[in-house]
């Protein structure tokens, strides 16, 4: 099969969200979902990294760009990466944007947008650049 029939000629930005059980955890999750849908990056499975599954861990080590979104300063996503020896890049804590952590799950679209804007500002407008050595997209870590 020829190269052009197989590969998407882009590099990937991995988005890891804590996706925790609070408003800010779910803001991290929803921002990651929407950024993925908008083509900014690709949300990936933090649990797979935490479970030390080699494909997930190696993908996190080898990916071109990464953004890690924690809901609160407890820093579970950061802790997962640290525990697995994966270098952290581009780190955002949702409560640093002025949100107060609460056990609520009804998210305001404006709040989601604020988190997305913070991620975009941190990484620049287009973290996905033409690839020179990466190739086909195998899995998005669902």
């Amino acid at each position: 099969m020829a190269d052009e029939t197989c590969c998407t000629p882009t590099r990937k930005c991995m988005i890891l969200a804590c996706s925790g059980g609070s408003n800010v955890g779910q803001l991290s999750n929803q921002a990651a979902v929407e950024l993925t849908k908008e083509g900014f990056g690709s949300m990936y499975c933090l649990a797979g990294i935490g479970a030390a599954i080699s494909g997930f861990m190696q993908s996190a080590k080898d990916v071109d760009e990464m953004v890690v979104i924690d809901g609160c300063p407890i820093g579970c996503a950061r802790g997962v990466l640290k525990e697995q020896g994966i270098p952290e890049r581009n780190y955002l804590v949702v409560t640093d944007l002025g949100f107060e952590k609460a056990k609520k799950f009804d998210l305001d679209p404006l709040d989601i947008q604020k988190v997305k804007d913070a991620v975009r500002k941190m990484l620049g407008p287009d973290p996905v650049r033409p690839a020179d050595d990466a190739c086909c997209s195998g899995s998005d870590g669902e």
């Binding site: 599954i53 494909g55 190696q58 993908s59 190739c135 998005d140 870590g141």
Partner: peptide, 8 residues
């Protein structure tokens, strides 16, 4: 295998 990209 859980890989984000190929080849792997």
């Amino acid at each position: 295998f859980g890989v984000m990209m190929t080849p792997a």
